[in-house]
Design a protein around this nucleic acid. Structure first.
Lengths: 232, 232
DNA sequence: CTATCTATTATTAGTAC
DNA sequence: GGTACTAATAATAGATA
């Protein structure tokens, strides 16, 4: 979290990874300790280092065993409800990203519509927007969507890494969803065309139309957001 | 961690505590998840909320059980070595504070000595420092030491709270040590007097001397740093 | 209670020793 | 390998809706 935004992936460099491990483990211990103090909760944590035989245990081996025992003795039915395990945690985060994406889309739509309105006020018809305007609009949209895209990619990477580690088929299916859904979402964004030319000539994702000139694509990490613009 | 420095103690207000619990639990989960990803470590965490029956378990109940089992199956001898449990964690933090205190003392000594040297250069003998100079010196020293003192007090509070919660006699003994040791350390700080009047008339912590006038004490949270200054 | 916002504190990545 | 420092990112307390 300093000097550079952390890339949420396995750190290849040995000494860097060890240093990070030490620092973050310390930070975690502190945070668990604080949570326990502030909220008077019973908590425990066990961390097995990369090559180490002894795990770090907080607050003590006895307490950890006690808590786990208490958990294991619960009826199975109860266990599954409301439990925040890894999958649920990631699923929740993915859902939240979806929601953020939705809001971002709405904001973008509003922003772009008002921009177009402004251009109209400047003396031209909405139907007169030229190729330069459309290109700049495309870049503007891209800048906004890119930030969302990055977050989704990051999330997807994390999910993929985790599922690889766990070798769980279920997790893998889950892992792909956020990206797929996000891309679907992005590709459904033909609202820009709607705003520009609400009647016809709007073609996206194939389908036969009339004379159409594609605006140069805006590249994303692993996909494309294609914006087509019909002009005379 | 925002708007106000967090007071590391049980949050009395119910809704505030619940909000904090939710936020921090989420933050913890994220951090454990990140540590696992970044360093490829096996880790688990179990948190029992204040009133809740179900604990939050990360990454999953199965993994938690697996890790704890692995730990319980280790030879007893191995368990105790190098294990970072609650007591060891706090002990380590206390030790680090001691070290910081030591360095602060050294820095203070250097700072004050150079200040005195400056006064000497200004045309007066070291032995001519008057009562005003000494008082201001005392305040300056206090300002620096106070910051150290505060950190120690905070640490002590945390230790005390924790030991109360655990009702462990051993922990309580441990809890008192940092403060006691720190105060001992502070009270041994007669170096200011040494610097001012290296030969004699320096009396601290009792003992018979000659004509000595005490400079008004500088109050600390729960103790006093008395500075005596001999003058003609 | 849930969610969002933001000013502030806390954590830490990279660096230097 | 460790410790110390600092600039930058991340977490979050308190407020608001």
């Amino acid at each position: 979290m300093a000097r550079k935004k952390v890339n949420l992936a396995w750190i290849a460099n040995d000494s860097t990874r060890r240093a990070t491990f030490k620092k973050r483990k310390k930070g975690l211990m502190k945070k668990v300790s604080e949570l326990a103090t502030l909220c008077n909760v019973k908590a425990c944590m066990i961390i097995y280092g990369p090559q180490e035989q002894q795990p770090e245990v907080w607050p003590s081996a006895q307490e950890a065993a006690r808590l786990l025992e208490r958990f294991k003795n619960m009826p199975e039915m109860e266990k599954c409800r409301k439990m925040m395990d890894q999958e649920g945690f990631l699923r929740q985060r993915a859902a939240k990203l979806q929601e953020q994406l939705r809001r971002q889309e709405r904001d973008n739509r509003e922003l772009e519509v008002s921009l177009l309105m402004h251009q109209a006020v400047a003396g031209r018809s909405l139907y007169d927007v030229n190729i330069e305007d459309a290109t700049s609009l495309a870049w503007m949209v891209d800048a906004k969507l890119k930030s969302v895209q990055d977050r989704i990619n990051q999330q997807t990477t994390q999910l993929a890494l985790r599922s690889a580690a766990e070798a769980s088929a279920t997790a893998q299916v889950t892992a792909k969803n956020p990206m797929e859904m996000a891309m679907d979402s992005l590709q459904r964004q033909n609202w820009l065309l709607d705003a520009m030319h609400p009647s016809e000539n709007v073609i996206f994702g194939g389908g036969g139309g009339e004379e159409i000139m594609p605006i140069p694509c805006v590249e994303h990490n692993s996909s494309w957001l294609d914006l087509y613009f019909p002009f005379n």
